[in-house]
């Protein structure tokens, strides 16, 4: 299908008007190539983050301190797989298949959130991830429920509903440790100390250095700037930390009456860029394990395909 230049202009005007009117763009609508490419990049990175994010937490399933905690953690890790699949499904509506995206992840050609390149050293890390990492994710994701691209927005609605359980189980876990023995309290505090700053980095670089922000805001893929969301998250976390009986590792953190927000210290963006470049504590391990898991699953996929062929039920 080819369109002439004047036709493209008309289609672009229809697209712009739909976005301006806060209508949703649906898969078969005409959309600018750059809009499609931006969505594929963002949704893929988001999907990859969900499935890579299974690893740091799965690390503790066999060592969960009770059957209750183990069942909760398994359900949470299974949810992360589900979230990845909702998102790959949304990406596929843009004409990019799951296999292509997985290949790119395995080849290191597409990214996932840098937060998952940090190790989970103690059981308390499971709590800190739930409270802080999932909390930051929710802050990022709630506005995405109103994203201009329909399938992405709908996937986010499902995900946000489920993330709420993730965050609350993490908070409850940390609260239990914080109110436990001295050693348990110290373990909880140590986890928060290590996860706080990387969680703030999850919102991405400062607004004046964010490469894609302005265009994404114009297309209503993004609704709020990185710094705005980061501030919202800090403001939410400070009182929550107080209720936990834990402190946040930032000597510059204090209420600013004039701004009506908490001021916080400088983020180490060098660390952020180093981790993005592949030099975080666990980058190689995460991608290595993902590739291995995919290769180890080959026989299951082959068996399923053989079964379908034998029974002739592959109707599509």
């Amino acid at each position: 299908m080819t369109t002439t230049a004047p036709e493209t202009e008309v289609l672009a005007a229809v697209f712009d008007a739909a976005v301006a009117a806060d209508e949703r763009i649906e898969p078969r609508d005409w959309m600018p190539d750059a809009y499609r490419a931006t969505l594929v990049r963002q949704i893929a990175q988001h999907a990859h983050s969900e499935i890579i994010g299974m690893q740091p937490e799965a690390n503790w399933i066999t060592r969960a301190p009770s059957l209750r905690r183990k069942a909760i953690l398994m359900a949470k890790v299974q949810d992360e797989a589900g979230h990845g699949l909702y998102l790959y499904s949304a990406a596929e509506t843009l004409g990019t298949g799951r296999d292509e995206l997985l290949d790119k992840l395995h080849a290191g050609r597409q990214r996932y959130s840098s937060i998952f390149n940090y190790p989970t050293l103690t059981w308390a890390d499971v709590g800190a991830i739930g409270w802080l990492v999932d909390g930051a994710a929710i802050t990022n994701q709630v506005p995405l429920c109103r994203c201009s691209y329909g399938p992405y927005a709908r996937a986010m609605v499902r995900i946000c509903k489920e993330e709420s359980f993730h965050q609350r189980q993490g908070y409850e876990l940390l609260l239990t440790l914080s109110r436990g023995t001295e050693a348990q309290h110290a373990m909880a505090q140590d986890a928060v100390d290590r996860w706080w700053w990387p969680s703030l980095m999850m919102f991405g670089p400062p607004d004046d250095e964010s490469a894609h922000s302005a265009q994404s805001m114009a297309w209503k893929i993004k609704r709020h700037s990185n710094d705005e969301l980061r501030q919202r998250f800090v403001d939410i976390c400070v009182p929550q930390a107080e209720s936990l009986g834990l402190t946040l590792p930032d000597p510059d953190l204090r209420w600013n009456e004039a701004r009506g927000h908490y001021d916080f210290g400088a983020i180490d963006w060098d660390e952020f860029h180093e981790v993005l470049r592949g030099n975080g504590p666990c980058n190689d391990q995460r991608i290595g394990q993902r590739r291995t898991a995919h290769e180890n699953g080959a026989w299951v996929r082959e068996a399923a395909a053989a079964h379908a062929a034998k029974h002739g039920k592959a109707t599509a």
């Binding site: 699949l85 909702y86 499904s89 949304a90 596929e92 509506t93 799951r98 709908r154 996937a155 399923a304 395909a305 079964h307 379908a308 062929a309 029974h311 039920k313 592959a314 109707t315």
Partner: peptide
Amino acid sequence: AGSLHAPDAEM
């Protein structure tokens, strides 16, 4: 609700 890939209807 969404979509998925599978080798046959049962899966």
